[in-house]
Design a protein around this nucleic acid. Structure first.
Length: 154
DNA sequence: GCCAACGTTGGC
DNA sequence: GCCAACGTTGGC
């Protein structure tokens, strides 16, 4: 049975269109322990993902992805030239992990944060809770399905 | 660009 | 282990 997630990305940095172009991508650069733990411990291949565009105008869910590989050490933590370089990470003791995601589909229309706020039944989604800024969040199947329908509508 | 909310760091 | 200072997120 798959789990359901919402993963945030700033479209200026990495968008659903880029994922579609390259089909798969490591979800690297996550530097938050709670988000890391979701990837390390809870995500497994086949899990479904709402691809959320944050810091966008407007922000919202742009499409769907699927977890294609379980977590591996995030290579950017060892790369001194990367903005995600972490001097405290050691090769034999990595600190950060990332899963691989595969493109699934781009919605016909963006499901905006504003619509999610107003939609009956989605009141409990973490993404609309005040102060919630975790970049990877668990989602219920019910909420996942509602968002999918909204994204496929006209 | 502002800033509320939250996470992390580091001195003690 | 506390907590002030600082950094980041992300909507607006």
């Amino acid at each position: 049975m798959p789990n359901y997630w919402l993963m945030k990305s700033e479209p200026d940095v990495f968008s659903i269109d880029q994922l579609q172009k390259q089909q798969t991508s490591l979800w690297d650069g996550v530097r938050n322990y709670q988000a890391r733990n979701f990837m390390m411990k809870d995500m497994k291949p086949g899990d479904r993902v709402l691809f959320y565009h944050s810091n966008a105008k407007p922000p919202g869910v742009a499409g769907l992805a699927t977890i294609s590989k379980e977590a591996v050490p995030d290579p950017t933590q060892f790369n001194k030239k990367s903005e995600y370089y972490d001097p405290k990470a050691q090769a034999d003791h990595p600190r950060w992990f990332c899963v691989e995601v595969a493109f699934a589909k781009k919605f016909n229309r963006l499901v905006t944060l504003d619509e999610i706020r107003k939609k009956k039944g989605l009141e409990k989604m973490l993404v609309i809770q005040k102060g919630q800024r975790l970049s990877i969040q668990p989602v219920t199947k019910k909420d996942f399905d509602i968002i999918c329908k909204m994204g496929e509508g006209s």
